[in-house]
């Protein structure tokens, strides 16, 4: 059986269930790189181009991790667009080329182009071509693709219940291992309920304040605890309920995003702006934090637009990069949490 490696980075957190199901239905064994650890980050930093942002560098580390595992192929799609008239950051377009240029002895890359900015015909053709590589006919490929889409929807349903994408991935995987009725999956506690408190609790206002904090940013930064320095977990430990873009209704997010004078053409940027504006008007959201990676081109614009348009709710922009010292992140999070808590109690 052939093996295909999927790097645990970038759009992994948005599309993994689709990819995995599709390849498995074609009879290919899927191998996923380890959750990001220090070694993966270090290897990525050593290999990647200097100008790339941290998540891209970490992606290199995941590809190298898969190389060491000796997989037959590595799945590194050339992502241009995942929706009509919406685009992904240009670095994603160049990912397969950047990998080939910098990693010698790379296993064959499956760098299928995903460009849905106009229509789906080209992707369909490429998916059939891909199926041929693994000896599948059109009908089998079609069935595999449909099964993948179905799992993707299931995964999005899990996320919408109230789980950050990384937790949703874990739940989706566990659900696949031990089949249960789809109703059961959503019966699990929404994110944060079973997160341990205590520890540094004395550093912040007690849990009784019961705050809801909206956390925005690119999913692949937020979901990777090494990149985000455990932002979501730290907030949950302080006692906050965390709301992410995936927990909001897509059409409402779209509606808020469309209030901009000009259409935002980055898919994730649009999602973040729409979510931020939605959260800004939602009284249940007490504060909004935007996590950006140092050197992110789209965020230099998107973050700025959000900072200017969020007017009702306390907002904080946090920029992270390669540093491992957590003191700066902790100080800012605690200060923000304190501010929101004291403000709420004063009202």
């Amino acid at each position: 059986m052939k093996t295909i490696g999927i790097p645990r980075g970038l759009f992994f957190y948005y599309y993994y269930p689709l990819w995995r199901t599709f390849f498995e239905k074609l009879g290919v064994q899927v191998v996923v790189s380890a959750p990001t650890n220090r070694r993966i980050v270090d290897q990525g930093l050593l290999t990647a181009v200097n100008e790339a942002c941290l998540p891209v560098k970490v992606y290199y580390g995941h590809v190298l991790d898969l190389c060491h595992r000796g997989v037959d192929y590595i799945f590194a799609p050339r992502l241009v667009s995942v929706e009509y008239r919406g685009y992904i950051c240009p670095k994603f377009m160049g990912i397969p080329d950047m990998l080939r240029a910098q990693i010698p002895d790379l296993p064959p890359l499956i760098d299928i182009k995903v460009d849905l900015s106009r229509d789906e015909r080209q992707l369909e053709r490429d998916v059939f071509e891909l199926g041929k590589l693994f000896g599948s006919d059109r009908y089998k490929v079609k069935a595999a693709w449909a099964a993948g889409q179905q799992e993707l929807e299931e995964f999005r349903r899990i996320a919408a219940v109230g789980f950050p994408l990384n937790q949703a991935v874990t739940i989706w995987e566990r659900a696949g291992e031990a089949p249960m009725a789809s109703g059961d999956k959503t019966r699990l506690n929404p994110g944060g309920e079973n997160i341990r408190t205590g520890g540094e609790a004395s550093e912040a206002t007690p849990r009784s304040s019961d705050l809801t904090i909206g956390v925005l940013g690119h999913g692949y930064s937020l979901c990777d605890a090494m990149v985000s320095m455990g932002l979501v977990r730290k907030l949950q430990e302080l006692g906050a309920r965390v709301v992410t873009a995936e927990m909001l209704k897509t059409d409402e997010v779209e509606a808020y995003a469309s209030t901009l004078p000009k259409r935002m053409f980055w898919t994730l940027g649009k999602k973040n702006i729409g979510s931020a504006l939605w959260m800004d008007e939602e009284p249940a959201v007490d504060g909004i934090i935007y996590l950006a990676c140092f050197g992110c081109g789209p965020d230099s614009l998107v973050g700025e637009i959000i900072a200017r348009r969020v007017v009702n709710t306390p907002f904080m922009m946090m920029i992270v990069d390669e540093h491992t010292g957590e003191a700066g992140v902790v100080t800012r999070l605690e200060a923000f949490y304190d501010m929101v808590a004291r403000r709420k109690n004063a009202v």
């Binding site: 140092f294 800012r332 923000f336 501010m339 004291r342």
Partner: peptide, 13 residues
């Protein structure tokens, strides 16, 4: 405002 912190910023990188 009215003795309550409503906004803050720190130097970044």
């Amino acid at each position: 405002r009215d003795g309550i912190v409503v906004d803050f910023a720190m130097n970044t990188v």
